[in-house]
Write a protein that binds this DNA or RNA. Structure first.
Lengths: 339, 339
DNA sequence: CTGTTAGCGCATTCAA
DNA sequence: TTGAATGCGCTAACAG
């Protein structure tokens, strides 16, 4: 690879000192017009661009924001990233995106790598494995040293820091209420294992809706999907009960779509025999047949808000620290054909 | 933000010189056992981690690979990224992912930002706008200075460089052949505008299959979707013809799913009245009803291969330059219920 | 065995 | 108006 041009080379080439070049390139009036123009022209000709590493090191400012997500193939996370991007770019920040693959060790590595000078702030959605283990010391360290850090969606309750979360409980509540309003009585939920906070919250809201309307919360109607195993088989259990439910709330889009497939496989009609509602911000719901009613998660907004919070922390002066915030993003029911 | 610990601080604290600390931390035998252990213990206690910016600047090596994609919410791209990640991580490289949003200007900015010291190599799928304009000078510069650069999927024919592409033409050909084998006669294609190379190639292959089997390539059966406008309306045109087609090849998953919806909306049966085949590496095809037959794109493999190529270029010695490679990833038909 | 010096690319302070 | 010196955090060559 041929070497890139730098200030020193320009200086040597033009017979001036590096500091003169540096100043001339930022149009400093310290430098004479003629020299300035000569240097600028030369720099342009050779397409000089300052080395960002050197700049970052010098300024102690990278203009980068780190983002750690559990999975990049999950549409929700990419929506959030788009939202982060949009706000960050407006302020000339770039993103460094890392994927933990829901593994604790990868997450720890990513955190270390990013916070050792590469970024000015960090946005994280915590890996499932970290949540299971309850091992948050890598984040605790950052909190302790006041490193700008914002969590979104998958957060740790006992960890200080700014957070942006979906109002999962109300979302679940509205999902339950919606099914009840549609005249459904035997309501099932397809959710995640208990260490996944978002699943738990959605389930809690759902249960609350059932309680309020005096609907029985049947333990047979609760499926906790383990993604290690065949998802469809697990969901299919609902259809092997003596009394098959007539309404299903799935805590994500994929589970909802699979539930719909299972329903139709049995020759049952949606929404007549079975209503299905999902929880998502995805692409699938509009494309299924019938289209899927969902609780909209607004990932893009979440990203916006998350980015605003980190930028705020980054700009924050040492003396005027704000208390930690938890921003709650509201959901809403998007009614389509499946209910 | 409280200041991070560095070598200088450790040195001062322990009353030794910075270089002693540096050596001790990498367990150099130049340093006496006692001092070494003292320093290591201290570093561990205060959780010292070397500043990566300084390391990169010093070593002229960042251990980062830049990735520029047009859209992060497209599942295909995230699959490729996963593939890149997996190979890169094995060799201790990290990814810096940037999104061009299919805009030329953003792409140029991303290229500049990444190649000014932030990464050792670059992986790019070119923005639509860049392809339309045919303006590749920002890439040409990199090629000229032998910067490690690999394109994938959306490539520029007249640009030198390593490339990893899908065998779109054969894919399109197989799609056509598959529909014909299923006994379909009036074959339509839903494709992209003409500047999108991948769409053009798929169309070319499709046409070839039709030619071989003496099927008429009806211009009314070609829909070029402009994403600016309502996609469903554009696709619906196929169903307003006097003679509605009985087979559709859509060059991506979304178009295929919408085509299926249009079909069912008309009360037509899939695959009896209308067979639909898509082109994708996505999540939707398994979840539609009926499930969708597709040409599998193998994005993950593509990512693997792409990463291998950049790493190869990065390691390459100045004198032993390999000629540019174009790797072609084969597709295959995944038959499901829609054909 | 330990320390001094220099330099990666840049910007800034201060001196000329 | 220009340039020399310094330092951001680190390492490697060299000196002691």
């Amino acid at each position: 690879m041929s070497k890139k041009i730098n200030i020193k080379i320009i200086a040597a080439e033009l017979g001036v000192s590096p500091s003169t070049v540096s100043k001339a390139l930022k149009d400093s009036h310290e430098i004479g017009r003629e020299t300035r123009e000569k240097i600028q022209a030369f720099a342009k000709l050779y397409n000089y661009k300052p080395n960002s590493l050197a700049l970052s090191l010098r300024n102690q400012k990278t203009m980068n924001i780190g983002v750690i997500i559990p999975q990049i193939t999950h549409h929700f996370f990419t929506r959030v990233i788009s939202g982060i991007e949009s706000v960050a770019n407006q302020k000339d920040y770039n993103l460094m995106i890392c994927v933990s693959k829901d593994l604790h060790e990868k997450e720890v590595k990513n955190v270390e790598m990013l916070t050792n000078g590469s970024v000015d702030g960090l946005i994280v959605s915590i890996a499932n494995e970290t949540l299971e283990k309850g091992e948050f010391s890598h984040f605790q360290r950052l909190v302790d040293e006041d490193f700008p850090l914002v969590f979104f969606d998958r957060v740790a309750p006992n960890l200080k820091g700014d957070k942006v979360i979906v109002d999962d409980e109300t979302g679940g509540y509205n999902a339950g209420k919606h099914l009840i309003e549609k005249g459904k009585n035997r309501l099932a939920i397809i959710t995640t294992p208990e260490h996944v906070t978002v699943g738990v919250m959605r389930e809690r809201g759902f249960k609350k809706a059932l309680d309020e309307q005096n609907k029985y919360y049947n333990q047979n109607y609760v499926i906790r999907v383990e993604e290690k195993f065949d998802i469809e088989k697990q969901i299919d259990q609902l259809f092997q009960l003596k009394e098959i439910p007539d309404g299903i709330f799935a805590v994500n889009e994929t589970y909802a779509a699979i539930a719909m497939k299972c329903t139709m496989k049995r020759g049952m009609q949606i929404p007549r025999d079975m209503a299905v509602i999902g929880f998502t911000d995805g692409v699938i719901s509009k494309l299924t047949t019938p289209t899927m009613t969902t609780i909209a998660q607004h990932g893009y907004n979440m990203g916006n808000k998350t980015a605003e919070l980190v930028l705020q922390r980054i700009d924050e002066k040492e003396n005027e620290k704000l208390p930690y915030q938890t921003v709650v993003i509201q959901t809403n029911v998007v009614e389509r054909e499946s209910t």
